[in-house]
Amino acid sequence: MEYTVVCKQLSKLYHQGDVTIAALNKVDLQIQKGGFVCLSGPSGSGKTTLLNMIGGLDHPTSGEIHVDGKRVDQMSKADMAEMRLRQLGFVFQAYNLIPVLSAHENVEFVMQLQGMDKKTRADKARAILKEVGLEGMERRRPAELSGGQQQRVAVARAMVSGPSLILADEPTANLDSVTAEMLLQMMRRLNDVHGTTFLISTHDKLVMSYAKRLIGLHDGEIVDDERRN
């Protein structure tokens, strides 16, 4: 079986004075390629910490992280940046987009960093924006888009360069239920069509209902792992 993410004995400890807090405590996790996985749990359970470490935005205290067979926790800053650029896509809860760029330019941004030629990236950006239902809104800046539209642009940007893994941290937290459902349907469709692996942290039951696999976290430990068909 092919895994996109493998975590071995992953721990993250924070020190507050004399007290040591384990945000993650010896977590072992394997995520299959093409998965649509939700990390659920209450606030402080370690969902975001786990997501950040898999994405190379934070360093573990101990343990190993492998993404597409590459050891992330031992990478240099430059290699990590390169991995985030080529293999990962991020969707955050809010402030996802660059305010001074239009929707089209935001989607093009990552491809531009990758050095893709102008025509290819313009075609790809146009196509993915159409796919997420934002045709005709390409020139709008984030301030001119609704919260749901902004999240769709963020997903489009995360998807457009064909990463192997998309990490989404509470992507529906600021959306109403109708918009959230539309976003989830779109993400699932992209997962089904393109085979991109999604790892989503949430405590929203609606999001969990879309998961192919639901991992429960509590106090930095995996307490539940449910696979669905």
Partner: peptide
């Protein structure tokens, strides 16, 4: 600040 964090998350080098 958040924007610079976003740039780094998207793979922009420092």
């Amino acid at each position: 600040t958040r924007e610079f964090g976003l740039f780094q998350a998207l793979g922009m080098r420092p």
